[in-house]
Design a protein around this nucleic acid. Structure first.
Lengths: 345, 345
DNA sequence: AACGCTCACGTGAACGTTCACGAGCCCACA
DNA sequence: TGTGGGCTCGTGAACGTTCACGTGAGCGTT
């Protein structure tokens, strides 16, 4: 026997003005049936007379009844919620990755809680704190080292985006920067470029910078610290600023390799503003393959990444983790960039 | 007394290979304490001896214990999850709106489950079906009429994005298209344009088209059916295709108003491909204010919308609905576009 | 020695739903 | 007239946690 409603009438005003959420009991009582019958009506199951069903639904409507997703989830397992942590939704790269994650999740019947950490490590941790309580797994971009992540994770499976296996013990999916950069540098080299600069992203020397330096060495190009400039942010404005510094330090360069397409576009703008024509005076090579690269002038030559695939792979990793299988390691968890030659290089 | 574990050892392999998720009971037993003590250890509460806490945590680690978010949510209310349904994450407009939603939700301590309906009404309904079971409120873009939505909603509060009050009885936030289009058309008119075409979006005559026709009438411009062309999709490619048809039908136009920035950019590309220079032979006006408009050549003149604000407003509407207050109606729920004059018009 | 206080921990209940089972009813059929 | 079977509906239990208490040990104070 359920305890009697402490309010005079079902759905009556509380003293504070707020209502106590109606439960299945309240509906059952108002409709004069049992909980189970209410459940049947609400969930559209069989074994119920159409007339009673209508009566129950009317009662539910009257009380503004909505089933508790918690009570439901407690008894019928299977609902999976993944967390997705993205550094910056305004960078067109990440919505594409997110689209891949959402697509793959939808196919599996999972839901995805999305967090935009806005390039703030504290917010990354905060996201982890919340998601570790509310999600069954987390995938995302994180800058913290493994031990910090583990502390905020409380045992929830994690899949890291764009972290090499040597950088983390967690499951990860990433980009084969080395192969991509090699293609790009070969292209520049074959076009006759020998003095090539790089506009790097903000976090310390990552795979792209290392691959760049590796290629510079392989091709026997001049190499010095100030051929690589770190841009203040991963945006067009960041690329413009970085390019100004790079051209000031190394005016003799004939080509520049951008950390991503936004930075590369910024580089082109600065170059042209300073009177250098692209690609004749200066070739610009991007990395990402954003669709915006087709729209700028000249169209951006870039290393195209299948960003949706990256997202889908991440979900596959989550699935493996959940199944207790070994996550994909190495090449299977990498997306290989593809050189797309347009006009800028 | 809790029922005894049916498996030989806690955390032992199941016949099928899957493990039964360890519960707080299992941990309690292994650590030789009560549930409550486990709860205290796991949740970092006081009233526990550091030594026992460590022992409990070790047991939890051993069993790979993670608290059930359902059981937790059932007993401690307060966790709010909102659903966000977006038509197309690849259109840069929507990630911006989403960013606003996420930001506002984060401030309130809510989580957001995101769905990409990929411009498919069936998927919209599917999203509603799921979210009505799993979310406390839904905000998003939906094409279905009120009654269809209500059927898939099961009483969950809904906030519609970009639907005028005359189009729906649900709470909504939108864009003041009329004011925006008026600004834009005034700008074109003052620049001397008298033959102005429009590239509309795919769904039937919406506020933007109606406002365009209204302005055409107000300014006494020639008006005919084929001055408005419907683009096959809301993308650059869609704009290119639409512009081809528009120029074929009405080669005499001197300006074109695009449904959004992507379509406007497509229009520019087709115009230039056909030998018309922008803005001299043909002025192009966009709508949205995507940052990509600054990057194309010539830079796009557009009606800029504060997309984040749109998202924030939507969350505010949800909050009102949940509090039982009246949602914002009229001007307070509208975002007013602002004319940003660049080079294309 | 009696009292009170703090600390560390345990116990029953409650949260709101679904599941497995069972009961009653009505009708058809032998 | 009994029997079987489909409908329709109800009952106890279970899901895994936290909350509000309760308890007992240890210790200091009067």
């Amino acid at each position: 026997m359920w305890t009697d409603n402490q309010w005079a009438e079902p759905g009556a005003e509380r003293p504070g003005g707020a209502r106590r959420r109606a439960t299945i009991h309240d509906v059952a009582r108002l409709a004069g049936v049992s909980r189970q019958t209410v459940s049947r009506a609400v969930n559209d199951k069989g074994e119920i007379d159409p007339a009673t069903k209508e009566r129950v639904l009317e009662a539910a409507r009257l009380l503004d009844y909505r089933p508790s997703r918690f009570a439901r989830g407690l008894v019928q397992k299977g609902a999976v919620t993944a967390g997705l942590v993205i550094p910056d939704l305004r960078n067109p790269f990440f919505p594409e990755v997110a689209a891949g994650v959402l697509e793959a999740a939808e196919q599996r019947g999972w839901q995805v809680v999305v967090w935009d950490s806005r390039i703030d490590e504290a917010r990354e941790r905060q996201a982890l704190d919340v998601l570790s309580h509310q999600a069954d797994a987390v995938v995302g971009y994180f800058k913290d080292p493994d031990d910090v992540l583990a502390r905020h994770l409380g045992g929830v499976p994690l899949v890291l985006l764009e972290r090499g296996p040597q950088q983390t013990g967690f499951a990860a999916v990433g980009i084969d920067a080395a192969t991509g950069v090699e293609q790009g540098m070969d292209h520049l080299f074959r076009a006759g470029h020998r003095r090539i600069g790089m506009l790097d992203g903000v976090h310390g020397p990552g795979p792209r910078r290392l691959a760049f330096l590796e290629q510079v060495r392989r091709l026997g190009l001049p190499v010095d610290e100030d051929w690589v400039v770190v841009c203040p942010e991963h945006s067009v404005a960041g690329g413009e600023a970085g390019m100004e510094r790079l051209l000031a330090a190394r005016p003799e360069i004939t080509a520049v390799f951008g950390f991503n397409d936004l930075i590369a576009v910024g580089a082109m703008r600065t170059a042209r503003r300073q009177g250098r024509s692209v690609p004749d005076d200066l070739a610009v090579l991007g990395f990402d393959g954003l669709s915006l690269g087709e729209l700028v002038e000249p169209a951006l030559t870039t290393l195209h990444i299948d960003k949706r695939q990256l997202g889908r792979l991440a979900v596959e990793q989550v699935a493996r983790l959940r199944a207790g299988e070994e996550p994909l390691r190495g090449a299977d968890a990498w997306v290989v960039p593809e050189l797309v030659v347009r006009s800028s290089a």
